[in-house]
Structure formats: structure tokens, C-alpha cells
Nucleic acid binder design. Structure first.
Lengths: 335, 335
DNA sequence: CTGAAAGCGCTTACAG
DNA sequence: CTGAAAGCGCTTACAG
């Protein structure tokens, strides 16, 4: 691969001049510029990014640290991020922590987690990235050692415990409110909830939204009608069974994700209760399955691509804030 | 951030010695090594990868060019790739071509595609990656300009037209054979096929496998029982309708992917034909939906993570070959 | 408008 | 076992 020096020699100009042309500086004669540009094209010269990155202060590289690339949310968030970064001509270095597959135990092990994340950040600093985006697998509070770096950092899909870090998250509260509102508007008053894990932030915010809306409509919130589950289909099965044992006149079940809603369907269908007719069922996430369930599931779409885009914009603009993005109601046939 | 030079000064040794310690060279006195290591830890020194990459021939960075990160196959393939690369201490630079979302038209536009891919490769060369992995969104023949670079290059999920490029793909032929065999073993003789797009390589290989197995069992292959569709649910709906018009004693339908199988279910259920009882249905891909269909769908799992791992190993080892990975039969309730 | 020179932070022979 | 020096390929003041 040809270098700047060789290129300059071929054109009979100095390397400084070629460098200036490459960087779009205006202090070069038009004739010279054209001549050099021509040779660049002919030779297929490509600047060495390592050399440039060493000398210049900016590397035009953003570090993406993703907790798990195989989480359903990750690819679309990254898609959104890259769509913005690409426009601005940024490169992306990806670090996949693989927390789901490799470090199953570390969601709650603060020390181990802290070590993993700091190593990842150090890696990024080593590469001299211009900024770091942290893409979590699910919402929770995360503490980042910010004193070790001084480059822009945005966290998405989780909440930074530090106040000096920006973040983008979904608005679980208003989304749950909207869903509950929809149920009530459809005449449902006795609404049960299959929530996620009890200590999970999504669970807490959504539950809070549900309560708020019930209150607004003067419907008493009944703690008995809340069952916590593990976000999985089987959890939905168990939760539904419990719910049906507790009460036989539930009008609607708001499942806090689609997979649990699918488990809910399983139980209802087995008992010859028709979802959407005998009991309204709604989900959350708008996972692909929700379209394939029969009847198709009303749910909340998480605007992942938009979340990614907002995150990238925030990183580039750099004004400290914590943004909440509302979800989008997808009305289907299960109410 | 502290540099090698400052670090050396603090330790009262030369930068060469520190560099040697950092790189695990054996030509350093034990006492010196310990002392320097101690200071490295204290100062939190991190080598500048840009500087190292400029001077050394190897950057320990692999370039990943993915046609579309949001293709269902991409995240798991990347997961597999990264699990291997991480072990060997390689970093990953990700370029997302976003062919599905951005360049919808370019699957078939050879010239445009060629330009996009060459730009991506040039980018990677610019960064001085030690190797490039190309992750396609679906199987087809792809030509790569190999004369522009001389670093290891492996293509996965598509076939390189050049004979000097290595590749890893799924074995559509034997997988389709196995599935057809399973159907026949279950007593099905009149088997229909909802294939993908006619010019698609997956379609062609799978169809070939089906024919081969039918022949082996002396079952005449009936072209009338093959309907091509677009890999989508709606395509499966249309295809199933056509099939049911053509013949009323079909015993099994082999859908070339799960989404079309779901469409097939839609039609059957509407006509009160029970999948898995009146007609056996099988799919391909083992997408998440296949587990949620009722009855759950027998299908072929694509070992995406393994494909990724094999790809990464091949890149690192570098012996020229084209590998085919067999899929895994997932028996469920639809036969 | 153009070029000579310093220097980014490392690694790598090489000398001792 | 240790260090002085060259150099990787660029960018950036600065001089002319």
C-alpha cells in the first residue's frame, strides 16, 4: 500500500501539501489539488488511520460496548446508532461483553461487573475513541467510574448512577399508562398484571404507570392481581395459573412482555378461554411472536432504532441530559 | 493519560525496557520487571493502540463487515466470531452495510453493490486490520476484488465467486435431505414444497436435497407440488392456497423457512385443517416463532454461533477451504 | 500557495 | 540485561 510520502514524491509536491489536500484545507492551489487528486485516484491511496489517529487528536472512532449483542434489543439499537454515526463519518469499534452467554452470574455481582465494564472502557480508551456508548441489555442502575476518562459517554437502555453521564431510555411509565388507559377505554375494569421480576426497573416503572392510570379512573388497585414472573413464556404460564386461581372474573391481563403473554395464551387456550374475547390480553415489546399469536397480540413497540439514533446524537452533541423515549401502541386483536 | 516515556522516567529505565516488559519479552531482569509492573498498576497506564498499530505490523484488530446487523442470522454469527476472537485477544471493528434498511435495491445491482463492498474493504485496510470477515445476509454468489489487499479474508453465509477466498456456509443440501427423510420415515409420500425465491441459492440447494431423498425412496418428484414464495408469512399464505387448489391429498408441506410455515398454518387453521394431524408441516431456520406456533413447528436449526466460530477459526488459521456446516433437526409437534 | 521539520507514542534491531 | 536511536505514516505550526 502506497504512503503519503510516496504519493508526494510522485506528484512532486511535499507531504504537507498532500496532507492538506486530503484534509480539505483551502490553502492549496487548484491546479496542484487536481493533479494530486488524480494521482490519489490512480494509485488507490488510502490514508493509514493508525498514523492519523496517533498524530491527530480525533480518531473519528466511537466505541460501542454492548452487554449482549444477542439481546433482542441490541441489533436495532446499534442499527440506529450507526445510521447517525455513518452520516458523520464515524467508525465503530464493537466490544461485546456477552453478559447473557458468558457471564451469567454477573448481573448482580457488582464487583465482577464493575471489573468487566472497566476493562472494556479501558480498551476503548486505549484505542483513543472519540466517545463511548454503553448499550445495556435491560434497564437497571449502573455505576461507571468516570474519573478514568474524559471523553463523551452515553448510556442507553439502563440508568447511570452517576449524575455526570447522559442516558437514553424507554419511557416505561407513560407507556404502561397508555396501555392501561387503552384497556380501560375498552371497558375493562378488573385488570390483572403479569409483571416481570419484582426488583427489575422495567417492572417497577410499568407497575407505577398502571397504578397511576387506575387511580385516575377511580379503579382500586388490587395487589392480589399482580403476579411477578421471570419474563419468560413459562413464567407467563405459571403466573396465569395463579391468577386464574385467585379470581374468576378477570377482564384483562396486562403482561409486561410478549413472551409471558404467549405463556398466558397457552394456559387460556388449554382451558378453552379465548384470549381477546373472554379475557383481553396485552403484551409489551412487540416481539415478532406477538404478530403470530392467535389472536394477534396488542402490545407496545419499543422504538429501538430511534433510541439508538437519539443516543448517537446525544453523544455527538454532548449536552448532559437523560432522555426518555415513549413506546408506540400496536393495536391488534387481543383486546 | 500517561505515556510510555513518562512511565519509563518514573521507573528510571529506558522506554525500550518498559516496552519489552509490556510485550512479555524475556530479556528483562526480574527485579526491574516487578518494579515497572508495579508502577504500571499504580498509574493505570494503557498503551496507545494507535501508536502500537502504526509501528508494529499487527494491530490485533479484525474487521467485521456485516451486510445487515438486523438480519436474524447476524447477531449470533457475530457472537460466535467474537467468542473466538476474544480468546485470542483480538479487537473488532464493525462496519454495518445496512443493506436491508438502506440499500434495498442493491442486492441485485452488481455495480452498486460492488462499490459499497469495496468502500467497506478499503475502510478496513485503512485501519490496518489483520483480517476481514464478511457476513452476508443470505446465501448468494459474491465477487470480491482480492487484488486490492493481501490480508486473510473469510466470507460467511454466502459463497465467494473467487476461488482464493475462504468461506463458511450452512449445508442446505444435506439439511433438506434430512428433513425430507424425516417426513418419509413418518409415512409421508405426497410431500409439497413451499420454496423460497426461485433464483435463491438456499432454495436451489434445498430443493436439490429434497429431490435426492425422494429419488432414494423411489418417490417421483412432482414439480407441481413446488411453489416458490418470498420467504415471508404472506408468501406462505399464498403458496399454501395454491397448493391446496392443486391437490387435496397432500400429506406434508416442507416450508423452506419458518415464516412461510406460519403463513401455511394461517391458511390451514382457517380451513379447519389441523397442522401436524391432517397435514404435516415442517419449516427451516428455527426462528423463535416456530416454538410458539400451535402445534409447535418441527424445523431445522441453523447453528449460527458455530458458523461464526468456524469462520473466526478459519480466519486465524488461514488454510484455504470452503466449509459447510450441517443444520440440526428440531423435532416438535407438527409432523 | 508550498515545504522543511518536529513530533504523536510506540516497537525493533542493534550495540554494549 | 539495558538503552540510544531510527522510524512507522501521518498532522500541524511555522517560515518563506
Amino acid at each position: 500500500m502506497i504512503t503519503l510520502k510516496e504519493l508526494a514524491a510522485r506528484c512532486n509536491v511535499s507531504i504537507a501539501t498532500v496532507s492538506n489536500i486530503l484534509n480539505g484545507k483551502s490553502n492549496v492551489g487548484e491546479e496542484t489539488r487536481q493533479r494530486v487528486l488524480q494521482v490519489i485516484k490512480e494509485t488507490g491511496y488510502r490514508p493509514n488511520i493508525m498514523a492519523r489517529g496517533l498524530r491527530a487528536t480525533k480518531t473519528k472512532t466511537i466505541g460501542l460496548i454492548v452487554e449482549d449483542l444477542t439481546a433482542f434489543s441490541s441489533p436495532w439499537i446499534i442499527e440506529g446508532i450507526m445510521s447517525i454515526l455513518e452520516e458523520k463519518d464515524y467508525r465503530v469499534v464493537l466490544e461485546n461483553l456477552r453478559l447473557y452467554t458468558k457471564h451469567v452470574d454477573c448481573w448482580d455481582n457488582k464487583e465482577k461487573f464493575s471489573h468487566i465494564i472497566n476493562t472494556a472502557i479501558n480498551q476503548m480508551i486505549s484505542i483513543k475513541v472519540d466517545g463511548i456508548i454503553y448499550i445495556a441489555g435491560h434497564a437497571r442502575n449502573i455505576y461507571i467510574e468516570t474519573n478514568q476518562f474524559n471523553i463523551p459517554f452515553v448510556m442507553t437502555y439502563a440508568f447511570p448512577e452517576n449524575k455526570d453521564i447522559q442516558s437514553v431510555n424507554i419511557d416505561d411509565l407513560t407507556s404502561a399508562m397508555q396501555m392501561t388507559e387503552t384497556l380501560i377505554k375498552n371497558g375493562k375494569k378488573k385488570i390483572a398484571f403479569i409483571a416481570g421480576k419484582e426488583d427489575n426497573l422495567h417492572t417497577q416503572f410499568r407497575l407505577q404507570g398502571c397504578k397511576k392510570t387506575l387511580e385516575k379512573h377511580n379503579i382500586a388497585f388490587n395487589n392480589d392481581l399482580v403476579v411477578y414472573a421471570d419474563w419468560e413464556r413459562d413464567g407467563g404460564v405459571e403466573a396465569t395459573k395463579k391468577l386464574l386461581e385467585k379470581s374468576n372474573d378477570i377482564e384483562a391481563i396486562f403482561c409486561f412482555n410478549d413472551l409471558m403473554a404467549a405463556g398466558c395464551y397457552d394456559v387460556l387456550l388449554e382451558k378453552n378461554i379465548t384470549p381477546g374475547k373472554d379475557i383481553s390480553i396485552v403484551g409489551f415489546d412487540n416481539r415478532m411472536v406477538s404478530e403470530y399469536l392467535k389472536p394477534s397480540l396488542t402490545t407496545m413497540e419499543i422504538p429501538l432504532e430511534q433510541i439508538g439514533a437519539e443516543t448517537a446524537k446525544m453523544l455527538l452533541e454532548g449536552n448532559l441530559q437523560n432522555k426518555l423515549i415513549p413506546c408506540k401502541l400496536i393495536l391488534r386483536d387481543s383486546i
